[in-house]
Amino acid sequence: MIYVSPTHELDAGWAMDGTSSRLCSERDHASHDHLGLERREHESGELHRRSQSSSFRVGVDLVVVADVARSVRRFGNRYIDRIFTPHEIMCCRTPDRAQGPSTGYSVESLAARFAAKEATVKVLRPEGPRPDWRSIEVHRDRGGWCEIRLRGRAARLAVDAGIAELAVSLTHESTMAAAVVVGMCSSGDRSVGRPAPSAWREE
């Protein structure tokens, strides 16, 4: 019997690699430490720890703010409406035009949201067509915190990958914007049926 370890392990440090796996023999034995992480000792004496039922995917993206400003000026609402949801557009509007003097938008905020969409795509890992940008929404709550909401093909990809949760962090300076998205897969077994989380709306 061969045991295939899950997708993240601890050797010298956490290796959050969603594709890696390692073969261990049945003579490996397991125990659990105070973090709830399985300790599995190999024949070689090499030690691995893993969480019992989850794995992670990470995506990151970096966007040049000036590129977004240029797109808004060049393509206007065609660019905005093709990429961003009404909620995102509302969040990025600058009524007094104090920012983005020629666009009416905070182009830094738009750039950060574009980065979040691309980072999410890296987590979803589509093998065919990529999901429409608008099927990935950065939703900002009243406190200013953001979360990723999916619909359509993006939601289907998340369900198929067993992604139960997505966490996002956005940041920007005047010239660059970036986002990191972490997806937690509730199980590595894609055949396990799970209801889609409420934020995943399949259409």
């Binding site: 993206d61 966007v63 040049v64 590129d67 977004v68 240029r70 797109s71 060049r74 393509f75 065609r78 660019y79 093709r82 990429i83 574009f114 691309e118």
Partner: peptide
Amino acid sequence: SHASVNVML
């Protein structure tokens, strides 16, 4: 990826 959006438009 962002430049490819502009190319597409």
